[in-house]
């Protein structure tokens, strides 16, 4: 009872963030799509936290995870840090508009935000780090996002009661 009180939705979502981050930065040769799926799950969880649990501490989270993702996946600080912080600032600017939308509209915006975030990261990686923008990789991300989006939203709504 005490534990369930302590584990409020925000903490549960943060645990998911840590797990998905850890799995996405450790490559498994036999299951490369597991890495991709958890990388997308991290983004989904982070966007969900911004949309439904917006708080000042998310800036610190964005800062830490942004730097760690950049160092571990790109060896240069840049794209994830910029993407996460930009998303937070953008949400802060348009949050009044989002509160007027229906739940279905928000779910749609949630998915579009995820895809745009992944796309921006790939484009930034192309410009700043010289990693060629691969349509195949993006298509792979898109398909995985499509597959895991609904179950993830369902899971999050259950966690959030």
């Amino acid at each position: 009872m005490e534990l369930s009180k302590f584990l409020n939705p925000s903490i549960k979502l943060n645990i998911i963030l840590i797990i998905s981050f850890s799995i996405s930065v450790n490559s498994f040769v036999l299951f490369p799509n597991v890495n991709n799926a958890f990388y997308i799950l991290f983004h989904l969880t982070f966007i969900y936290l911004i949309f439904y649990h917006y708080h000042f501490y998310l800036y610190i989270l964005a800062f830490i995870y942004g730097i760690l993702f950049d160092i571990l996946l790109l060896n240069n600080i840049g794209i994830h840090l910029i993407a996460f912080l930009s998303l937070l600032i953008l949400y802060f600017v348009i949050r009044k508009f989002l509160t007027r939308l229906s739940s279905y509209q928000i779910i749609f915006i949630y998915f579009v935000t995820l895809i745009i975030l992944l796309l921006i990261e790939q484009i930034l990686a192309n410009f700043t780090n010289g990693y060629k923008f691969s349509l195949l990789t993006f298509f792979n991300f898109f398909i995985i996002s499509l597959i895991i989006f609904i179950p993830t939203v369902f899971l999050f709504s259950k966690l959030d009661k």
Binding site: N26, S27, F28, N35, N36, L72, L73, L74, Y131
Partner: peptide, 11 residues
């Protein structure tokens, strides 16, 4: 000890 060669870089 570990590899980061699936997404973006090959390290």
């Amino acid at each position: 000890i570990n590899r980061n060669d699936t997404i973006y870089t090959k390290l």
